[in-house]
């Protein structure tokens, strides 16, 4: 019924699913079909994609971010609640970020984070029954590039598809812009982008370029 590369709709069924030792990896927009094994149900409108040997997913237009474990996201601190921060990452619920999850933080020496600060963090756990949990250190307890971002940057919301496109190393947009203006950029897969350049004027020009890329 549904073939690879075609535009598919909810209710369609993928037949003859390829698997290795009974394992098939399915991405967003697909569900296991309980009535008939070896087939998949489609639950989103989009393009059906397949990668050898056994991975299937749907490339659709999603507008709302659904947290996934390990994602690097940009969030804004919404609340300070004792030893933990509540961070808005654009999902259904605020994510929790413990004060101790910063590099070098101890019970006595807490990081200086204010409500409204922009934070670049990794999702430590994202289970749909629980609130998502963020962390600002890697497995060696080093911050790396994670943590609170400087106050002089600019944060905007962009579509999830555009974020994925910009994160692709082969995408020419960001390197091309870099030749003209030196700038710093942080992309969160939750559809947020933080920008900073030498002048305000440059930031605005860059934002306009990104907006143009969004429309296209």
């Amino acid at each position: 019924m549904a073939n690879i590369g075609e535009y598919v709709y909810p209710g369609d069924v993928v037949k003859n699913v390829k698997s290795i030792k009974g394992i098939t990896i399915i991405g967003p927009g697909l569900r296991q079909n309980e009535e008939n094994p070896n087939t998949l149900c489609i639950s989103q409108a989009g393009k059906l994609c397949f990668r050898e040997p056994n991975t299937y997913w749907i490339e659709g237009k999603r507008h709302r971010y659904i947290p996934k474990k390990g994602d690097l996201v940009l969030g804004v601190v919404a609340k300070k609640a004792g030893d933990s921060l509540k961070v808005d990452i654009g999902s259904a619920e605020f994510a929790a970020l413990p004060m101790l999850a910063f590099e070098g933080a101890t019970k006595k020496q807490k990081p200086d984070v204010q409500v409204g600060d922009v934070i670049y963090a990794r999702l430590l756990s994202a289970h749909r029954e629980m609130e998502p949990e963020l962390i600002c250190v890697d497995s060696y307890f080093k911050a790396g590039r994670l943590g609170v971002l400087p106050n002089d940057g600019f944060l905007i919301n962009i579509s999830l598809n555009l974020t994925q496109r910009l994160l692709d190393i082969k995408d020419p947009l960001l390197p091309t812009l870099g030749k003209k203006f030196p700038y710093e950029i942080v992309l969160g897969v939750n559809g947020r982008m933080w920008l900073n350049a030498k002048q305000r004027k440059d930031i605005l020009t860059l934002l306009r370029c990104i907006e143009a890329a969004e429309a296209d």
Binding site: Y9, G11, R62, R64
Partner: peptide, 11 residues
Amino acid sequence: CLESGIDMKFM
């Protein structure tokens, strides 16, 4: 619903 990309069992 279709446009927002939310999961649906059918249209």
